[in-house]
Amino acid sequence: MHRRELLKLIASATGVAMVGGDALAYTLRDPVPLSETLFNKTDVAFINEASEVIVPATDTPGAKAANVGATIAVIVTDCYPPALQKTFREGLTAINTASQKQFGEAFISLSKEQRLTLFNKLDSEATAYNTARGIYGIESSKPSRWEAGTTFTPPHYFTLLKQLTLFSFFTSETGATKTLRYVPVPGYYDGDLDYKEGDKAWAT
């Protein structure tokens, strides 16, 4: 017999339920499989390659190693309203178009240097595009700030990619533990700690 039914039975017999039961509090959310997103494996691989240009591997792992593509697929599917999903999707195509235009090749075929050149250009374009429309501060805000049903002007697709990459990277285990300072149980607080250049920031 299920515990809940057992509880009901006890409750109806005495009016007093036992303390306990299967608490549904702090709902545990299952990982979202790729098949439930708007993206396929090729998309995720592409996003990983693109994100790696924004946050490359240096002496610590980069966006690809953190598999930010998979996280971005889930966030765009579940946390974005349709208008932004469209902007983001079209952006993936637009990256290739821009790549063809500048280098005559698809993005995936570009060298590291070419990718960086292309993305720095897209980044400047994005800033100009957003400024012209009075859209500010997206990079440092949360990817979920938009609501379904509200009207808004979507920012440049590249800004979305950049924000999603930074967010997904720094909240990933790789980003938080290898690139940032991560201590699960600090144990004490010191508000006057000496800092030298190069020391890492705390993961939040």
């Binding site: 240009v53 924004i54 946050v55 490359p56 240096t58 610590t60 980069g62 960086l116 993305f119 720095n120 980044d123 400047s124 800033t127 990079e139 440092s140 950049k162 924000q163 930074l166 720094f170 690139t179 940032l180 800092y195 250049e197 190069g198 020391d199 890492k200 920031a201 705390w202 993961a203 939040t204």
Partner: peptide, 23 residues
């Protein structure tokens, strides 16, 4: 922390390094 973003740094290693250090 990293949430501050640094628009001037564009993309790449410099941006990553900057955001890995406290602001």
């Amino acid at each position: 922390g990293w949430r501050r973003g640094v628009a001037e740094l564009g993309v790449g290693a410099d941006l990553k390094d900057a955001l890995s250090s406290p602001g």
